[in-house]
Design a binder for these strands. Structure first.
Lengths: 234, 234
DNA sequence: GGCGCACGTTGCGAAATCACAAACAGAAGG
DNA sequence: CCTTCTGTTTGTGATTTCGCAACGTGCGCC
């Protein structure tokens, strides 16, 4: 791989507890790759040839149903792994990963996974912990979808995004990448129409501020109350 | 642990590729435990002291929301691991596991996980593959909940159950443990009322046959068509 | 600087699903 | 054999959410 910001890499939880010498070896076998906005990191159903770490940018992980409907499974932020299908015994990618903005990823041949995990136990353990966290997240999402109605689901989704990628701005916390009503709908299992209505309603109550491909949470605490269903109506 | 059916254990995919001597060591440090129907294997929020393999019976994994609603995350059948929170870096159980019928489990101290995975790599790998499969399952479930309406979700849930635990009977494929309308509702994010209506409708069309705590799929193929949304209405 | 287009908003009727309520049925236990 | 309890069925009206359609609007390209 080429020259990279080592201090950035060193600080990632994923690489915590790995001896510098080992880390060097790990990085040596990686390829750095640049993905332009809207480009694919990998595609659903494609052979799982590599696994990745996102170094810069934002990636959207999307599952498409046989009849063409799309669901956004999660957003990936720098420092997270993606495409770890191989590590989990699968040989095709179960979803597509799309660059939301220009991105930089590190890529390793998927076949190397077993050697990797054996040679650098911390790396393996760290990754599995991340998977564990992810499994938990997804299960929580199932519970949400099963028990909450749309308004609360959308509120939760926005709050999660602010946690992941929130950036303080003068008006509140900005979700730090372009996101459309359609995207939010695909995260929460609803339609862009319903999302649009919710956002305008919330804007009138001073909870959020939204524009084209952009959402700012103005009153996170009140939005949380709403998400938890403990906010008095209108 | 006491005397156990070794041939059963040997045949589990979880223990595939493990040298007999190693398997002995693994089993030596396990405790066999019997859980009566409706008893807990572990409880949500409790300290994750052990991880388990189900040897006999059926276990329901349930997540309870702060406001008391329950969601059935999955059913566990013999040979599967459960409570692997520790292996994934968590120290409390994220859900409860309840014996649906009388069960037998093997239990290991959760603290042993790291040694285990290191000493018996196949065991670790097998487990992680199972986790991978599970992550995939849950994500598929999210997609279903996001894109399908109740009728198809319930159909899918029943079909999954028949795959996992289906038992041929004279009238079709029987789901091989007691399951109520309420249970099915909690698997699919709907109400027992809606499930009840669906089952009676399907029974009239000759797709299923149901009784108290019991469902038999009479025409799996047609139910699959319905689940896929490719069955003509009425 | 104007035009086209992708994204967003909004109104309205339709459909799915829930919520509440009442009645029923079969199993278990005394 | 009767009683009780749990699980189930079913009706009705209320809500939520969708689907469609029309209409805005700001961004970026030519």
């Amino acid at each position: 791989m080429g020259r990279l910001d080592r201090s950035l890499i060193n600080s990632l939880p994923l690489f915590a507890g790995i001896a510098p010498a080992d880390l060097d070896k790990i990085l040596e076998s990686a390829t750095s790759r640049r993905i332009a906005k809207d480009g694919f990191v990998f595609e659903q159903g494609g052979e799982a040839t590599s696994f990745f770490v996102l170094l810069d940018g934002r990636v959207r992980v999307v599952k498409t149903t046989p009849d063409g409907q799309q669901v956004i499974v999660r957003y990936i932020v720098p420092g997270e792994v993606l495409g770890i299908a191989q590590a989990l015994g699968r040989n095709t990618y179960p979803a597509s990963a799309i660059a939301v903005v220009d991105c930089v990823v590190l890529a390793w041949p998927g076949r190397q996974w077993p050697e990797f995990a054996a040679a650098f136990p911390s790396f393996g353990t760290n990754t599995y912990k991340m998977i564990g966290q992810r499994l938990d997240d997804v299960q929580t999402q199932v519970v949400e979808m099963a028990t909450e109605q749309v308004e609360r689901r959308v509120a939760h989704a926005l709050l999660r995004l602010t946690q992941q990628t929130g950036k303080k701005s003068s008006e509140g916390i900005l979700i730090d990448f372009p996101i459309s009503r359609q995207d939010i709908a695909e995260m929460t299992g609803t339609t862009l129409h319903t999302v649009s209505r919710l956002l305008t309603a919330w804007e009138q109550k001073g909870l959020v501020k939204s524009a084209r491909q952009q959402v700012t949470i103005v009153a996170p605490h009140r939005l949380l109350l709403l998400a938890e269903g403990r906010l008095d109506k209108d």
